[in-house]
Design a protein around this nucleic acid. Structure first.
Length: 432
RNA sequence: GGAGGGGUUCCUGAGUGGCCAAAAGGAUCAGACUGUAAAUCUGACGCGCAAGCUUCGGUGGUUCGAAUCCACCCCCCUCCA
């Protein structure tokens, strides 16, 4: 059996497939040679986040199976905003901002694919390249002509917005589908790209693209969607402390990144191992068994966190994450050497430097940002509440003393104050 | 342009003159229990130690007193032209 054989079946067994168009034909198509697959990423921020990891790693699977991946950055469509998955109109970003996002995402995504392996080398394209040149007349005559509004309003993403009494949909967002369809046509012509992959909310857009290829290029194309990732408890996937988990180490440190995976729910861990790592079946089975046998050991969690952190941040990033985690969670602060504490700061433990010789605990909670209310403001009242509710640990010791002073005398090695809020939020104050 | 319906604290969504810093649920944060899990229970959830202060699309009125009444304006939705 060749490497590419059974790719679809393999992905399905990993839970990576939501829908495919014409499965029998698609399987034959994939088995029949090296194909070109594309997946689009909208530049909605200056970094990708872990949700984007799903298609990114899926593209890599295709490449490993002998196909050519195209990563499309939506410099044009990002200017417009996909109505899918949204209940309200997007805010439009300026061209300069989108351009900046595009270049950052291009660079970031490139780390996951091989760009130098001959025929199947990955390619990055920006749809602004062809979409910007499109005149309104050409757009309407050559492309718009092929779209039936009757069909478009039947698409799930559009229908939902039409049926919502409190929100409408602008013509701009309504047109998103057409531009995405055109992307597929262009890539089909240029690269003989025959497969588009996207989240299951993209199904409507992808199949429109297939239709457009049939009409404009008289070719057969295919659609593959992956299920949108959900947490078993119904909360939104990919949030940590209310923030997105980014791939950019300056936005989410390798340590925080590691902790995110380390803390995922039991019910999700095996599922995530399948989606976010490249572990083989034997290893997956071994971890699943271990997890079922003794979930308290969290072997699967540790394996997941290690594998994904390594994938995204490399060996060094993983090592740093492990170092901090070990120091903070094994309660061995007292035994840490001064170099260890310095290392924690370098490894990405959040740090605040202060000039004062001493400062009140409450001020420290403010300065560190730990005293953040559920709404996201840092307030003195919240600092008090935390201390009073027994949630604060200073240098390994719980304290409920509102008046407590942090001085060089109480500091570790005369300068480090390690604050802990709750069970797993840590912050270091360094007294210069 | 016309007719109608809406804009409330992070979200959903009650509230039509004082009892409203504003019901309820969700989300979030913390505590207990645990395994850095889930579920559950408890507390917090505009700011402030407090007195008090600032909020209910905006501005200006009426009133002892307004999220609630009036005027104008802005924004959203639906239908008609």
């Amino acid at each position: 059996m060749g490497m590419q054989q059974g790719l679809l079946a393999r992905m399905r067994s990993l839970g990576l497939i939501a829908q495919v168009s014409n499965e029998a034909e698609l399987v034959a198509h994939l088995d029949g040679g090296s194909r070109t697959v594309y997946c689009g990423f909208d530049p909605t921020a200056d970094s990708l986040h872990i949700g984007n990891l799903v298609p990114l790693l899926a593209l890599r699977r295709f490449q490993l199976a002998g196909h050519k991946p195209i990563l499309l950055v939506g410099g044009a469509t990002g200017m417009i905003g996909d109505p899918g998955g949204r209940t309200s109109e997007r805010e439009l970003k300026s061209a300069a901002v989108v351009q900046d996002f595009v270049s950052k995402i291009r660079e970031q995504a490139s780390a996951f694919l091989d760009f130098d392996c001959g025929e199947t080398s990955a390619v990055v394209v920006d749809n602004a390249e062809w979409t910007e040149k499109l005149s309104a007349i050409d757009f309407l005559r050559d492309i718009g002509k092929h779209f039936s509004v009757n069909a478009m309003i039947q698409k799930e993403t559009v229908k939902r917005r039409l049926e919502d009494d409190s929100q409408g949909i602008s013509y701009t967002e309504f047109s998103y589908m057409i531009l995405q369809s055109y992307d597929f046509v262009v890539l089909n012509k240029r690269y003989d790209c025959t497969i588009q992959m996207g989240g299951s909310d993209q199904w409507g857009n992808i199949t429109s693209g297939m239709d457009l290829i049939r009409r404009m290029n008289s070719r057969q194309a295919y659609a593959i969607t992956y299920p949108l990732i959900t947490n078993s408890d119904g909360t939104k996937f990919g949030k940590s402390m209310g923030n997105a988990v980014w791939l950019d180490q300056h936005k989410t440190s390798p340590y925080s990144f590691y902790q995110f995976w380390r803390n995922c729910a039991d019910a999700d861990v095996i599922h995530y191992l399948k989606i976010f790592t490249f572990l083989d079946n034997a290893e997956l089975a071994r971890l699943a068994a271990a997890h079922a046998q003794d979930p308290g050991q969290q072997l699967a969690h540790k394996a997941l966190a290690a594998a994904v952190t390594q994938l995204v941040h490399g060996e060094d990033g993983l090592a740093a994450a492990l170092r901090i985690s070990a120091a903070l969670f094994s309660n061995t602060l007292a035994s840490l050497a001064e170099v260890d504490l310095e290392q924690l700061a370098q490894d990405g433990l959040p740090v605040t430097e202060v000039d004062a010789e001493s400062m009140g605990l409450l001020d420290a909670l403010l300065a560190s940002g730990l005293a953040m209310t559920p709404r996201g403001e840092v307030t003195l009242g919240q600092a008090r509440k935390l201390v009073q509710s027994n949630a604060v640990v200073v240098n390994g010791e719980k304290t409920t003393d509102l008046e407590m002073m942090l001085s060089r005398k109480t500091a570790l090695y005369g300068k480090y104050q390690l604050l802990q809020k709750g069970k797993k939020t840590h912050h270091m104050i360094v007294m210069r």
